[in-house]
Every structure is written in structure tokens, then in C-alpha cells.
């Protein structure tokens, strides 16, 4: 299988600070991709560069053969590359219904609005109960469901999740992990940043350790690794 997303020697940062140093990776060749690594080493910056929130200083980002580096976030959403940012801040004073309508804003997603809404409700029945409620009144787990639901409304061809389980209670987290597995089984390839390595090992087929703004280690399918090895990657030898 060809990779759906290829990041080629991307350098990016904020102002004079360079966060990503010539980073390269591929996604979609073996299935879902997991990114892990210490905080502050460029995972979120990489995702922001991929989704167009941040313009890379150099390098190419190929999505399904098309170079999307430097395109506007709006144009990238139009290609079906959808990014769920970290921290479920979302739109605090909009209702769930409003968020779903916004998710289907792009002309690519609009024709599939009803069908995608069904999918979201099936995946997160809890949201249907609170359909008219403002996002700020929801729990952390529910807000994360709204974030992911909004992204599904955008009719993704590739879904990027940035720490979907951050700050959630263990029980809620398990439910959410199960839902993310469901999305994957539904045929949408995923790129997931996650601190919970167990979850990543279960969900993804290929892992990248991002360290100091570059890929420190790639773990391909078939290459097993145990908990101890990952810990030593995190914390050094």
C-alpha cells in the first residue's frame, strides 16, 4: 500500500525558534500510525504543520500525492485531511448541534452531512442526549467526543488525533479508546499522538518516537518491543 501521507524533511517553528528539524515520516503504508515521545519535542507542532495551522519553513507534505505544505488550513480541510487538536477547547458557547453543522461546513463534507451525523450519533450516543447543550457545560470526555464527532462530520480521509485521552478519567478513557478503534475499523486511517503507549500499541501498526523535533526511532509492524524498551526511549539509556 502507498503511504497516504508523507512528510519529507519538514522544518518548522514559531518565529525564530525552530521546533521541527528536518523531520520525515510516512503514514498509511501499514495502517494507523502512532506518534509518541516526551512533551515539548514537536509532536503537536508537526500536526499543526500538517494541517496548515503553521506554515513549514521548508520540506514537503504529500497527502495522497498532492503537496499540501503551505496551503491554507481551509484548503487542507478540503482535501479530507482532518486534524482534531489537543485539549478539546473547541467552541465553548456553541451547542453540539452547531459544532456538527460546522464540521460539515466544507463543500466536500456538505453532501455527506446527514449520513455522517448518523455515524457520529451511533458512535457517541451520549451526544444525542445533549444535542442542544452548550459545549462548555459538557464533561471533559463529552467534549472530546464532540471534537472527534466534529472531525467525523468533515468526512475525513485521514484523521489526526492529538492526545485524545488527555486528562480523562480511566473509565471514560477506555470508552473513548474503544470508539477510536471503531472509527479505525470503519475505514478511516488514523495518526494518533498519545502518551498511553498501551493504547497506541493496540490501535496502531507503526510507531514513531519524536524527540528533539525529529524522528528518533521508527517501529514497523512485526518489530515487537516491550514496555521497558519504550521507557528507555522516553527517558534515555
Amino acid at each position: 500500500m502507498n503511504p497516504i501521507l508523507t512528510v519529507e524533511s519538514v522544518t518548522a517553528g514559531y518565529g525564530r525558534v525552530t521546533v521541527l528539524h528536518d523531520i520525515s515520516l510516512e503514514a498509511g503504508r501499514f495502517g494507523n500510525v502512532g506518534l509518541f515521545g516526551p512533551n515539548g519535542h514537536g509532536k503537536t507542532t508537526l500536526l499543526r504543520a500538517i494541517s496548515g495551522l503553521l506554515k513549514p519553513k521548508s520540506g514537503r507534505i504529500l497527502f495522497d500525492g498532492q503537496d499540501v505544505a503551505g496551503l491554507s488550513a481551509r484548503a487542507i480541510v478540503g482535501t479530507g485531511l482532518i486534524h482534531v487538536p489537543q485539549g478539546n477547547r473547541l467552541f465553548p458557547d456553541l451547542s453540539i448541534a452547531d459544532c456538527m453543522a460546522l464540521g460539515a461546513y466544507s463543500s466536500r463534507a456538505r453532501p455527506h452531512e446527514a449520513e455522517n451525523r448518523e455515524k457520529v450519533i451511533k458512535l457517541f450516543p451520549k451526544l444525542a442526549e445533549r444535542w442542544r447543550q452548550r459545549v462548555r457545560t459538557l464533561s471533559g470526555g463529552e467534549r472530546q467526543m464532540v471534537s472527534i464527532g466534529t472531525a467525523l462530520m468533515s468526512h475525513p480521509r485521514l484523521l489526526i488525533l492529538d492526545e485524545p485521552t488527555l486528562g480523562l478519567a480511566p473509565k471514560i478513557k477506555d470508552e473513548l479508546c474503544a470508539s477510536v478503534m471503531d472509527i479505525s475499523r470503519g475505514g478511516v486511517p488514523l495518526i494518533v499522538v498519545e502518551q498511553d503507549i498501551e493504547f497506541l500499541l493496540e490501535l496502531t501498526q507503526q510507531l514513531y518516537l519524536v524527540n528533539h523535533g525529529a524522528v528518533a526511532t521508527e517501529i514497523k509492524p512485526g518489530e515487537s518491543l516491550d514496555h521497558g524498551e519504550i521507557m528507555s526511549m522516553y527517558f534515555g539509556h
Partner: peptide, 21 residues
């Protein structure tokens, strides 16, 4: 829907970019 988009931009600019506004 356009009014909804205006209200959304008011609340979160990054998230507005990410839904393609």
C-alpha cells in the same frame, strides 16, 4: 450557517481553521 461560522470564529480561531472556515 454563515452566522454560525461568525460565532464560531469569535470563540476559537484555530478550531475554526480546522473545520475549514
Amino acid at each position: 450557517r454563515l452566522g454560525l461560522a461568525l460565532r464560531a470564529v469569535a470563540q476559537n480561531e484555530d478550531a475554526s481553521h480546522l473545520v475549514g472556515l
